[in-house]
Design a protein around this nucleic acid. Structure first.
Lengths: 115, 115
DNA sequence: ATTACATTTCGATAGTTGACGAAATGAAGG
DNA sequence: CCTTCATTTCGTCAACTATCGAAATGTAAT
C-alpha cells in the first residue's frame, strides 16, 4: 500500500520533529539554529530535517553556506497541506513549543552558528 | 511537551494500522476479523488496536465474547477528528485498501472467527 | 588554494517497535 | 463449574530508529 502516507505520519511521530515543524511556523531555519534550540548534535538535526523533507513536509533551499528549511505549505499533496494547517492550530498552549517559538523570534543566526 | 500529539502520529505511522483505520470506515470490527484480513497473529492485532485506542483514534466496546472496535469520529480532541476525516478522503485509489474494504463488506464474523 | 564553517554521510550503539507463540484472562453456554 | 473461544498479556527476537562523534563534502572569503 501507499507508503507516502505512512512516511508522513512516521515523520510526525517524534517529539523533536514536531518541535521543528512548530518552529518553522515562525520562520525558515538552518540546521545550526535548530541544533541550538533542540540541543542535539548537528548530524541528528540534519537527519530529522531530511526525514521531514523526505515526507514532503518541508522545503530545502541553499543560501550561501546555509541550507534554509521551511514549511512546505504549498505542497501538491492534500494530506501534507492538511497536516501542516492542522498543526498550526495545535499545541498553542504547550510550554516547550511556546519557548521554542520565542527563541526562534529572538535569535540571530549569526550569533549562534559556530559549530 | 505534549505527548498525545506524538502518540497520535506514531499510531498512524504503521501501514497495518492505517489499513485498520480504513477498514473501520466501513464498519466496526473485532480482533479476529482484523486478524483474518491483515493475516497477522491475534496478539499482534490486539496490540495494534490497543495502540490506536491509546492514541484516541478508536473506541472499544464489549459485545458478548467479542470486543468491537470502531472509529472514534466523535472524539473530544480536534486533531483526532481532523485526522480521521482527512484519512476518509485519502487512499481511495489504493489497491490494498480497496481490497480490504471489499473484504470487510463481504465477510461475516461468524464464518471467520475461530482461533 | 587554504581556511573556516555549515552541512551531510558514515559507523557504532542503546533503545524502541513489530512480530510471534504460549500462557493468562474473560465471557457465554452447556 | 467446565469448556470453548475471543482477547490480552508476557517473553523473546529481529529489525528499525534516534543519537553521537568523526570523517567527508560543499561553499565563501581570505
Amino acid at each position: 500500500m501507499n507508503r507516502q502516507v505512512v512516511k508522513l505520519f512516521k515523520a510526525l511521530g517524534d517529539p523533536n520533529r514536531i518541535r521543528i515543524i512548530k518552529m518553522l511556523e515562525e520562520r525558515d531555519l538552518c540546521v545550526c539554529e535548530v541544533r541550538e534550540i533542540l540541543d542535539l548534535s548537528n548530524s541528528t538535526v540534519s537527519k530529522h530535517l531530511s526525514i521531514l523533507h523526505d515526507a514532503g513536509l518541508i522545503t530545502q533551499t541553499k543560501e550561501g553556506k546555509w541550507v534554509n528549511y521551511g514549511l512546505n505549505s504549498k505542497s501538491d499533496i492534500d494530506m501534507v497541506r492538511s497536516v501542516i494547517s492542522m498543526l498550526k492550530s495545535s499545541l498553542l498552549d504547550d510550554d516547550v513549543i511556546r519557548k521554542d517559538s520565542e527563541f526562534v523570534k529572538k535569535v540571530d543566526r549569526n550569533d549562534i552558528c559556530q559549530v
